[in-house]
């Protein structure tokens, strides 16, 4: 079946039984419907989103799986980080509802047509969506919590390593 898709789309083989297809975001629903009708990639396993902050884009990978569960196809769309919005896939795959809800909360992506985008894991969250790259979790933690004394993490250990090496050398030379 993958041969049929290869005729129509530019499909790259990334690994054994793992394929990748890059498309424009406005053709997403059209292409995914045609893939699910014309091939055996009928189910959606995951919607994976990556934040490429240096390119100002979100890359969303819709990972499709065959009916036989033997091949995976990653369909990648790239959308702008600023006005991030995509059509929902609720009509094609019912399980997309919860995945889109998750991504909406973690990245702030708006899925047009999905009206169940309410709180998923977070409660009363007022900051920027946490999985965006500009959200600094360490700064947030330092602002909201104080650590118990004795847990001074994330220190620069290089000075200590240098000191210990010098000490070891000294004791060796002394002998």
């Amino acid at each position: 079946m993958i041969e049929f898709l290869k005729k129509h789309y530019e499909i790259v083989e990334k690994a054994p039984r793992l394929y990748k297809l890059q498309i424009e975001s406005d053709k997403l629903v059209e292409i995914l419907s045609s893939v699910s009708i014309n091939s055996n990639f009928i189910t959606l396993s995951q919607i994976a989103c990556t934040d490429w902050i240096e390119d100002e884009v979100f890359a969303l990978n819709y990972i499709l799986t065959t009916k036989e569960r033997d091949k995976n196809l990653m369909v990648e769309v790239r959308i702008s980080r600023v006005h991030c919005s995509l059509p929902t896939l609720l009509n094609l795959y019912p399980q997309a509802q919860v995945m889109e809800r998750d991504l909406h909360e973690m990245y702030g992506i708006n899925f047009r047509g999905n009206d169940t985008l309410y709180d998923f894991a977070l409660e009363n969250w007022n900051e920027i969506p946490p999985l965006r790259r500009e959200f600094d979790t360490l700064a947030y933690v330092n602002e909201h919590f104080d650590f118990r004394i004795g847990r001074e993490d994330n220190k620069d250990v290089k000075a200590e390593v240098k000191r210990r090496k010098a000490q070891a050398k000294e004791s060796k030379d002394g002998k």
Binding site: D119, A121, L122, P130, F135, T137
Partner: peptide, 13 residues
Amino acid sequence: VGYLHRGFEKLIE
């Protein structure tokens, strides 16, 4: 859900 959310995917970054 959300009672166990630790933000693994943020921590791994």
